[in-house]
Amino acid sequence: MAPGDAVIRAARLAALLTAATVTVAVPASAHAATFCDRPAEINASEQDRQLQVVAAVRDELDRIGGAAVLVSRSGTDLSRFKIQYSHSGIALRDSRNGPWSVRQLYYACSESQARLFDQGLAGFLLSAGNTAPTRMSLVALPQNGGDRLAEAALDNRLALALLSPRYSANAYTFSTRYQNCNQWVAEMMAFAWTPHAAASSASASASASASASASASASESASPGAGTAIAAPTRAQAQHWLAALGYDPAPVVVPSHAIMFAAQFVPLIHTDDHPVDDLYAMRLRVSTPAALETFARRQWPRARRVEFCAVDRRIVVRRGWEPLGADCRPGEADEVIPLI
């Protein structure tokens, strides 16, 4: 296999390992271009289809209510890996960026570091580019769980304290060396849902607060939230709480050694944070949208999942934890919304 082919395959595998799309148009380097370029332009018909999905999702969010909802979307076609969602964020009813704006981590390529972004639902879905089918899922939390997650996510100082500027598409779940988009969400959940987490984080080091302050000055895209007096935790604390809460993502099986080889050439893929045994087994523990949804359900058994899938000339809406199949064929209990 030529080195160029290996890089291309690694880019695809990085998407498998939950690489986020980014909002910066100018890539930091030629190697990073695969990750950094905006998605391909979509035609007016496709854009209209995606906006109709967004309208259906917004209607559902308004019915659900609550302060925070876990949202996930499709992106790069990962069907060969039987993975349908690649990117998650926290939709916040009371975001100052607008109702149900999604707070999430993206890799800002022009700055060569990760940042937090607040993005409306339309931008959240449209940033995935042209996907077929188009998928979005929501996990609605009971009031206590949603309120606690919203309070944490809207606190800029706290949200930035759990942000690492060092991005890796395949970041290991229990290492602070790197971070990917879904890992930030997982750590926010851990802080919000761990009993007495706020009290136990009062002893967080002053360096964490200083880091959060520095990140805030460099992350103007994170809109001001409902600030609280909660002490800023460290990522190590958040991962300790994740483990204590039983967070255990199903391993992502890497189908070839290409990703290990190509990590030498692609700066957004790393293997030096993963346990050696996992590398040899080609089974990497990485935070994915599916892992986040499973975690949310475990913590809050009354959480509800709603899935939207636009295919052909219809949107299939499924309420329940049994996911739609690859072809999004509706079941008897599913709602079908004709696309206009």
Rank of each mutant, 00 (worst) to 15 (best):
A243Q: 12
Q237A: 14
A214Y: 05
Q237P: 02
Q113A: 12
V336E: 08
S29V: 05
Q50A: 13
I259M: 14
P27W: 05
V316T: 15
Y85I: 03
A171C: 02
E41Q: 15
M282D: 00
Y106C: 07
Q52P: 01
V7Q: 11
P289C: 10
E187S: 10
N130C: 03
A236D: 11
T134L: 12
R9G: 01
R302C: 00
A15S: 13
L16S: 01
Q104A: 06
R318H: 15
A122I: 04
D278C: 00
S213E: 12
Q237D: 10
L268N: 05
P233Y: 09
R12D: 09
E151S: 14
Q299E: 09
L17N: 02
S112Y: 01
L125G: 04
G246C: 11
W184D: 00
A250M: 13
S223F: 04
G65S: 08
P233C: 10
I315D: 03
V316F: 08
R58P: 06
A212Y: 06
A91K: 07
W184G: 04
D5R: 14
I64Y: 00
H270G: 07
V336D: 04
I269L: 15
G123P: 02
A192S: 11
L324Y: 02
I259L: 15
N97M: 03
A108H: 12
S205M: 01
C328M: 10
F265W: 12
A91C: 07
A56C: 06
A30L: 14
R313L: 04
P249C: 10
P249E: 05
A56M: 05
A212I: 06
R297S: 08
G246Y: 07
Q119F: 00
D327E: 13
L51A: 05
Y85A: 04
Q119I: 12
E41S: 14
S219K: 00
T18F: 05
Y106N: 06
C181M: 01
I8W: 09
D77P: 03
I8L: 14
A199F: 10
A199G: 10
D147W: 01
S203E: 08
S201D: 14
R235K: 09
A153T: 15
V311S: 14
L158F: 14
S223D: 04
P133Q: 13
C328P: 02
G120W: 06
F261Q: 10
H274W: 07
P275I: 07
I269Q: 11
